Amino acid sequence: MFNIENYEIFEIVNLGALIIGIIFGAIAQNTQFCFNGAIKDYILISSTKRGASIITAMITAIIATHFLTVLTDIDLTETVWLRDEINYFAIILGGCLFGIGMMIADGCSSRHLVKFSQGDGNSMVTLLFIAIFAYASTKGILNHFVYSLISNETLLNISSYIENERTNIYVVLSFLFLVWFYLTKSFKRVTSLKDGLMIGLLIAFSWYLTGVYGAQSLELDTRYVPFTSITFVGPTAKTLEFFTHYKTMNLNFGISIIIGVLIGAFSMSRIDTKYNMGCASNIKVNKLKNSMLGGALMGVGGVLSIGCTVGQGLTGFSTLAFASIVAILSIFVSGSLMGLYMKSKNKLPMCFIFEWEDEKKK
């Protein structure tokens, strides 16, 4: 019988992360929750369904995380997203690289975990290139260039004029609700957005797991649990490192999330098989080349921007960090522009149609 007292804090956190990842993967596979897909849907068929789910997740993550800070003693300023010395030039460049890369590869890091679990071989290539280039940017051949850019004194001094503080929650939520109303258009559609609600809650629960329960690791002098939530680029690189240089103590929250997403998405794809056929688009593109190039751009971009569409767009955004807002806007604008360019060249694939239920009936 499972007895929680027989396990150390970090082991329980890793188990919790695995469960969170399984739930995230199952939801994302079942509804095809996707930031990149939301942009494509709007560009190609003016559909706002997946976009509304993304905004719902953002709103839920912000509100739930806010209440968590009120009810507990966690301090979000201790996270990497609210650190003092922020290089906004690196954040913007990284966001642009990531946005362009996710459109070229037809999906961001979390999306390709789901697509790989569904049986898409090209997604495996994308994930490998994300991992390789993220690792190269943090510990490998690209580290000198990336570190030199991030730590450039001139850029840091210019960036210091705008402090990376928590943005007013009421201003942020007011803007997001306006966008939400524009995308949803009808309260009858709210029930279709439960995927965004659940994923937003997973962000807040992850904060609790690492920031409240995991904080006991310092008091009990056990293995340290980093204060973080769901993100994918860095953990994808660490997962590759974990499987190639295995050490029992290397398993952590981020790696457990990745493994969980793969398990959850794969399991759900066995139950709901309608997306397992791969992309149904007739557009001819070099998928292998796009997977390699897009993955490489996302790997480097994710490191520079301190996160991906989930790492910055949901986790970072939930802290209300100004840098996270800059990052996700950079990803959104660059991804949208790249999507429009690819559409003009007839190279933007629409794999499946995602519309509101009332629109389908029409």
Rank of each mutant, 00 (worst) to 15 (best):
Val179Tyr: 11
Ile100Gln: 00
Arg83Ala: 01
Thr65Phe: 01
Ala323Cys: 01
Val114Arg: 06
Met298Cys: 11
Met338Ser: 09
Gly101Cys: 01
Thr319Gln: 03
Leu201Lys: 07
Asp106Arg: 15
Tyr275Leu: 14
Met103Arg: 11
Thr72Phe: 09
Ser117Leu: 03
Ser305Lys: 05
Gly278Gln: 08
Ser151Trp: 15
Ala26His: 10
Lys188Ser: 11
Ile54Asp: 07
Thr236Arg: 06
Asp41Ser: 00
Ala61Arg: 10
Ser324Met: 10
Phe187Ser: 12
Asn164Cys: 03
Tyr213Thr: 09
Leu127Met: 11
Phe322Pro: 03
Ser217Asn: 00
Cys108Pro: 08
Leu15Pro: 03
Ile150Ser: 03
Ile255Ser: 05
Leu197Tyr: 10
Leu202Tyr: 09
Ser318Glu: 06
Ala105Tyr: 13
Met298Ser: 11
Gly339Lys: 04
Gly335Val: 07
Tyr42Gln: 12
Ile63Gly: 02
Leu262Val: 11
Val190His: 05
His245Gln: 13
Gly121Glu: 10
Ala134Arg: 02
Leu293His: 01
Phe129Pro: 03
Ala90Lys: 11
Gly121Gln: 06
Ile263Tyr: 10
Lys247Ser: 14
Glu163Arg: 15
Asp120Leu: 06
Ile22Met: 15
Leu329Thr: 13
Ser269Val: 09
Ile263Asn: 04
Phe145Ser: 12
Ser174Asn: 05
Asp84Gln: 12
Leu18Pro: 13
Ala26Asp: 04
Ala28Trp: 06
Pro226Asn: 01
Gly121Ile: 14
Met249Glu: 11
Leu113Arg: 05
Ile23Pro: 06
Glu165Phe: 09
Tyr246Ser: 00
Lys361Ile: 12
Gly140Lys: 07
Asp221Arg: 13
Ala280Cys: 15
Tyr147Gln: 15
Gly25His: 02
Lys345Leu: 04
Ser267Glu: 08
Leu44Arg: 10
Thr138Asn: 11
Glu359Trp: 01
Ile306Thr: 13
Ser192Phe: 13
Thr126Gln: 02
Val190Trp: 15
Lys347Asn: 02
Gly196Asn: 10
Met124Gly: 15
Gly140Trp: 08
Leu128Ala: 14
Lys289Gln: 12
Met342Asn: 12
Ser336Arg: 05
Glu5Ile: 08
Asn290His: 09
Ala265Arg: 06
Asp84Ser: 13
Ile271Thr: 14
Asn143Phe: 07
Asn250Ser: 10
Val80Trp: 08
Ala52Asp: 14
Gly294Cys: 04
Lys49Asn: 09
Arg166Leu: 11
Gly37Phe: 03
Gly302Arg: 08
Asn250Arg: 12
Asn122Ser: 13
Ile141Lys: 08
Ile74Cys: 03
Lys49His: 14
Tyr161Pro: 05
Met198Ser: 10
Phe232Ala: 09
Leu76Ser: 01
Ser291Glu: 00
Ser110Leu: 05
Glu5Val: 06
Asp120Pro: 07
Gly313Arg: 06
Gly260Lys: 02
Gly107Leu: 08
Phe116Pro: 12
Phe227Trp: 01
Gln118Pro: 04
Leu220Gln: 15
Asn36Ser: 15
Gly95Ala: 00
Ser269Tyr: 01
Ile100Ser: 03
Arg189Gln: 04
Met249Gln: 14
Ile331Arg: 07
Phe227Ser: 04
Val285Thr: 14
Tyr42Ile: 06
Leu173Pro: 02
Val212Gly: 00
Gln29Val: 14
Leu314Ile: 12
Val326Thr: 04
Cys351Thr: 08
Ala280Glu: 13
Trp180Ile: 06
Ile158Leu: 14
Ser305Phe: 12
Gly16Thr: 02
Ile263Ala: 08
Gln216Tyr: 15
Cys108Ala: 12
Cys108His: 07
Val326Tyr: 08
